[in-house]
């Protein structure tokens, strides 16, 4: 019995220590970019790795999700003769929920796991230690550019996702199912608001970007530097960040969209 409590206590303390280390890492890297002359090329490189490399999967998924939404929405709406409302249905569900959330999940799988594995491998091959011994702060040099790249990329990816998905819905709804293109756009415009829907969606995806990138970098930075440790850390990145995104999405939705 005592043993159980002891283990429980130790696990709790370990968790707190992990949160502490993660926060330390975040603060140590967030406002600690190398000077612009050296830092900007690093940032651009990471934007390429994290952002541009995720572009294809985001656009293809967006297209299909938009098409499926249109198809499903249409079959329900047509029974009420309200198929003209397909536009706002698709646009609102994308801008408020699916855009930020699906992007964050895909990002965690595509870029987050890659970040964890990369940092973990750098740790295992002593590259991080060797940076430290060369008097270069790895938080500054390695973590910070990746962090900012994630933070910048994800909202852009979410916007691209939503835009492509709406075009996909237009393709299915207007070109295949025969909704009038004018009413598709105009009813959408009447219902969607820039501040309430688009900007709130953007805020969501900024929060997700922070959480997913943070988890991915922390898991890599703190992993056990063996092949087993790295694979565990990579899995944990995807699982933890997906759960965090879905949980936070509920909280954010409750705060933003409940009157």
């Amino acid at each position: 019995m005592m043993d159980l409590f002891q283990r429980l206590g130790r696990t709790t303390l370990d968790k707190f220590a992990a949160i502490g280390r993660a926060t330390q890492m975040l603060l140590g890297s967030l406002f600690n970019l190398p000077n612009p002359r050296k830092g900007f090329p690093l940032l651009v490189r990471q934007l390429y790795m994290v952002g541009h490399q995720s572009l294809l999967i985001i656009m293809v998924s967006g297209l299909f999700i938009g098409m499926v939404l249109a198809l499903q929405g249409y079959t329900v709406l047509v029974d009420y003769g309200a198929e003209d409302s397909l536009g706002p249905l698709v646009a609102l569900s994308l801008l408020r929920e699916l855009g930020p959330v699906v992007t964050a999940l895909l990002f965690a799988g595509r870029a987050g796991s890659a970040l964890t594995a990369e940092i973990g491998l750098m740790k295992a091959t002593e590259q991080l230690s060797s940076l430290e011994m060369m008097a270069v702060d790895p938080l500054k040099r390695i973590i910070a550019p990746r962090f900012w790249a994630g933070f910048i990329s994800m909202p852009l990816l979410a916007l691209i996702f939503s835009a492509v998905a709406i075009l996909g819905a237009h393709l299915v709804g207007v070109d295949w199912l025969g909704i009038d293109t004018g009413s598709f756009w105009s009813i959408m415009q009447a219902q969607v608001s820039l501040e309430k829907d688009i900007l709130n969606g953007l805020i969501k995806s900024l929060v997700f970007a922070l959480v997913v990138t943070w988890i991915a970098l922390y898991k890599g930075y703190d992993c056990i530097p063996t092949s087993e440790g790295i694979s565990k850390a990579t899995t944990e990145t995807v699982v933890h960040s997906s759960l965090a995104v879905l949980g936070l999405d509920f909280v954010l939705t409750a705060v933003m969209f409940s009157n």
């Binding site: 090329p41 651009v44 490189r45 934007l47 390429y48 952002g51 541009h52 572009l55 646009a91 801008l95 990329s153 909202p155 852009l156 990816l157 916007l159 691209i160 939503s162 835009a163 492509v164 709406i166 756009w185 959408m188 415009q189 009447a190 969607v192 608001s193 820039l194 829907d197 688009i198």
Partner: peptide
Amino acid sequence: SRKIEILVGLFVFLGVAAFTMLALKVANA
């Protein structure tokens, strides 16, 4: 690095274009 710069530029441009489209065409700002 030049190729990377161009591709990143393209990525950012796409993001901004998506925002513009959403703001003007979808939300009618």
